[in-house]
Amino acid sequence: MSTEKREPVRSAPTADLSARFSRQRREGTSPELALRHELHRRGFRYRVQFKVDGLPRRRVDIAFPKRQLAVFVDGCFWHGCPEHCVIPKSNRDWWLWKFDVNARRDADTDRRLVDLGWSVARVWEHVDVQEAADTVEAALQG
């Protein structure tokens, strides 16, 4: 039996809210671009939105295939940052469920990548770009 909770009932979002969410970038966000620019400035070359064989329907934000390092830049809202994620008051139960589903997917992605021989580095979007690049560089050297 699955330990995953069922999706709670929610009220439909307004057309304005739906349009706003549909316009949000899923890749190439400002924090991701800043990290990519800093890594490039430091002399690192990488692949973007990389598909890993054996990891269906998921892509790595910044990949170093030869070194088998997958880097993800996690947005504070969608990935439930403990410091910055503000849970919407409307449909609160649904949002709590959604953040839990996202966290489980992230953990599953990490596990699958490790099983395939990859290392995984995750940085929050709010982390200073120099600190984020230092984290990636340390992972590349380790």
Rank of each mutant, 00 (worst) to 15 (best):
M1I: 14
M1E: 14
S2L: 15
T3G: 15
E4C: 14
E4F: 13
E4G: 11
E4R: 15
K5Q: 14
K5I: 12
P8C: 09
P8Q: 12
P8F: 03
V9L: 06
V9C: 02
R10V: 01
T14Y: 04
T14H: 00
T14F: 05
T14L: 01
A15K: 11
D16E: 15
L17N: 07
S18Q: 13
A19R: 15
A19P: 02
A19M: 09
R20C: 09
R23F: 07
Q24A: 14
R25D: 11
R26K: 15
E27R: 14
E27G: 13
E27F: 11
E27T: 14
G28M: 14
G28H: 12
T29N: 11
L33P: 01
A34S: 12
R36C: 02
R36F: 03
R36N: 01
E38R: 14
E38T: 07
L39N: 00
G43T: 07
R45W: 09
R45T: 11
R47D: 07
V48A: 09
V48D: 05
F50W: 13
F50I: 04
F50G: 01
K51P: 01
V52P: 02
V52M: 04
V52A: 05
D53R: 14
D53Q: 11
G54E: 05
L55Q: 07
L55H: 06
P56I: 04
P56V: 02
R58W: 10
R59S: 11
R59D: 09
R59G: 07
V60M: 08
F64I: 07
K66W: 10
R67A: 15
L69V: 15
L69Q: 00
A70Y: 00
V71Y: 00
V71H: 05
F72W: 06
V73P: 02
G75F: 04
W78S: 04
W78I: 05
H79G: 03
G80A: 13
G80M: 06
C85M: 09
C85I: 01
I87S: 00
I87L: 14
I87C: 06
P88N: 07
K89P: 01
S90A: 12
R92S: 07
D93N: 12
W94R: 04
W94G: 02
L96V: 11
L96K: 13
W97D: 02
K98W: 06
K98R: 12
F99E: 02
D100M: 09
D100P: 00
D100N: 14
V101D: 10
N102R: 09
N102W: 04
A103E: 12
R105C: 12
R105Y: 10
R105M: 15
D106I: 07
D108A: 15
T109P: 00
D110W: 06
D110T: 13
R111M: 10
R111P: 00
R112Q: 13
R112N: 05
R112H: 09
L113P: 04
V114L: 08
V114M: 08
L116D: 03
G117C: 05
G117P: 02
W118E: 02
W118R: 01
S119Q: 15
S119P: 04
A121Q: 10
A121P: 04
A121R: 09
V123F: 08
W124G: 03
W124T: 03
H126S: 08
E131A: 14
E131K: 11
A133E: 04
D134T: 08
V136M: 05
V136D: 00
V136K: 02
V136I: 11
E137W: 07
A138Q: 15
A139K: 05
A139G: 12
Q141H: 13
G142T: 13
